[in-house]
Simulated assay, not measured.
Amino acid sequence: MYLDQKEKEKIFKKHGKSATDTGSAEGQIALFTHRIAHLTEHLKTNRKDYNTERSLVMLVGKRRSLLDYLTKKDVLRYRAIVKELGLRK
């Protein structure tokens, strides 16, 4: 599988408060970004996989919602995670 427990812990440790802090918005955004990148690569080779395309659109929406939440809650945290993940130009 492309995303095992060790990979998740590494993502949460890098972007969250700790490796076990799976509820922080930054950690979830980082995890969604990793999954979005993987699904995008999959869709480049399997362009007629409509179930994966739908999953990708839903993930992008979830990430957008979390980013909107962070914008309203704490703009500095939003700017930090966007810069760290390279989501904006």
Rank of each mutant, 00 (worst) to 15 (best):
M1K: 06
L3Y: 08
D4C: 06
D4S: 09
Q5H: 10
Q5R: 12
K6F: 10
K6C: 05
E7A: 13
E7W: 09
K8D: 04
K8Q: 11
K8L: 14
E9C: 04
E9N: 11
I11L: 08
F12S: 08
K13Y: 10
K13F: 09
K13V: 03
K14N: 08
H15Y: 12
H15I: 00
G16S: 06
K17Q: 10
K17F: 09
S18K: 09
T20K: 15
T22I: 14
T22H: 14
G23D: 13
S24T: 15
S24E: 08
A25G: 00
A25V: 02
A25R: 04
G27H: 05
Q28M: 12
A30V: 05
A30Y: 02
A30P: 07
A30H: 05
L31V: 02
F32H: 06
F32I: 00
T33C: 06
H34N: 11
H34M: 03
R35F: 03
R35L: 15
I36N: 00
I36C: 04
A37H: 13
A37T: 08
H38T: 15
L39A: 11
L39C: 08
L39S: 11
T40P: 04
E41S: 12
H42G: 02
L43T: 03
K44C: 06
T45Y: 08
N46W: 07
N46Y: 11
N46T: 08
R47L: 06
R47Q: 13
K48N: 12
Y50C: 04
Y50L: 10
Y50P: 01
Y50H: 10
T52V: 11
E53L: 09
R54P: 00
R54K: 13
S55D: 12
S55R: 14
S55I: 10
L56Y: 07
V57T: 11
V57N: 13
M58I: 14
V60Q: 15
V60A: 13
V60F: 06
V60G: 03
K62Y: 11
K62I: 09
R64Q: 12
L66E: 00
L66G: 01
L67R: 02
L67E: 00
L67F: 00
D68R: 11
D68N: 15
D68K: 11
Y69M: 01
T71F: 12
T71Y: 13
K72W: 05
K73W: 08
K73N: 12
K73H: 11
D74T: 01
V75T: 08
V75F: 10
V75S: 09
L76D: 14
L76V: 14
L76I: 14
R77M: 02
R77I: 05
R77P: 00
Y78K: 08
Y78D: 02
Y78R: 12
R79A: 03
R79N: 11
R79H: 09
A80D: 06
A80I: 03
I81N: 00
V82I: 10
E84C: 01
L85H: 03
G86H: 02
L87D: 01
K89N: 12
K89Q: 10
K89M: 08
